[in-house]
């Protein structure tokens, strides 16, 4: 737009010295559709909603410094709602497994998967099915005022007694997240002095692989025994570099 043209229009500009010409927002044809907060186009008659769901995401990552920080940083920066995050070793000393329990609506679950996959040290990521094997561990220190009762509750929850001294009994409970919840609840009656709990360790059920990358590696080592022996050599070296112990980092 040349200045000359602009000046020709300057008469109608006077009314709106501080702005441009044209019909205002109320005089325009406006679209009637809407999207949800998640950016999903909605049918006004049947507004789509995405309820949160709790699920487990498993990622195979390169076993190197900084990976845990990278994953934890991603989760906190993008404000993903996680219940637990664990990191631990796999059959291959060069890789580690990160397991996240998250509570997100469907688009959020997909984002967690894709954002994780984008991190350079992440090898593969997937959401585990509902039938996946999931375990957690809790260690509780309870008062020993009623040892017999403690023992029977321990039995009920398949808890192992790790330590019993005058004053306290320390027990270990493993199970699904809900089972561990119930066990802790049951031990509350004795007075829990201290409690520590891990996040979820999970594997896909049966012959299904937890991550594709592991399936490929397994097939390769099975078909090529010489690679397998190299792996064993590497594993020895791996032991010296002290794999990270499972941690609950959230």
């Amino acid at each position: 737009m040349s200045r000359e043209r602009a000046e020709a229009n300057s008469a109608d500009q006077d009314a709106e010295r501080d702005g441009l010409t044209g019909p205002g927002p109320d005089e325009r044809e406006r679209p009637s559709g809407r999207r949800s907060k998640e950016g999903v186009r909605v049918d006004p008659d049947a507004e789509a909603s995405h309820p949160e769901r709790r699920t487990t995401i498993s990622a195979l990552v390169k076993h190197e410094p900084g990976v845990l920080a990278e994953v934890a940083g991603l989760v906190s920066r993008r404000r993903f709602d996680i219940d637990s995050l664990t990191v631990g070793q796999t059959t291959n000393p060069e890789t580690a497994r990160v397991t996240l329990t998250i509570e997100e609506p469907e688009p959020g679950v997909r984002q967690v998967e894709k954002q994780l996959a984008k991190l350079v040290p992440v090898i593969s990521v997937r959401e585990l099915g509902r039938d996946a094997v999931r375990r957690e561990l809790a260690v509780l220190k309870v008062h020993d005022d009623r040892p017999a009762a403690v023992e029977s509750v321990a039995e009920m929850f398949d808890a192992r007694t790790l330590d019993a001294e005058p004053g306290t009994v320390t027990v270990e409970v493993t199970g699904s997240s809900a089972e561990v919840d119930r066990a802790i609840e049951a031990f509350q009656r004795f007075g829990v002095r201290e409690l520590t709990r891990t996040g979820t360790a999970a594997l896909a059920r049966g012959t299904e692989w937890t991550t594709d990358a592991e399936a490929e590696r397994y097939e390769r080592t099975r078909l090529r025994p010489e690679t397998a022996s190299t792996d064993r050599a590497t594993e020895n070296r791996g032991a010296a570099t002290a794999p990270e112990a499972p941690t609950n980092d959230d």
Partner: peptide
């Protein structure tokens, strides 16, 4: 770092898929 170690390591030690 592990990464640097990996970069410096001869490839025959590789066991990745």
């Amino acid at each position: 770092s592990e990464r640097a170690r990996a970069a410096a390591r001869p490839p025959e030690e590789e066991g990745n898929p």
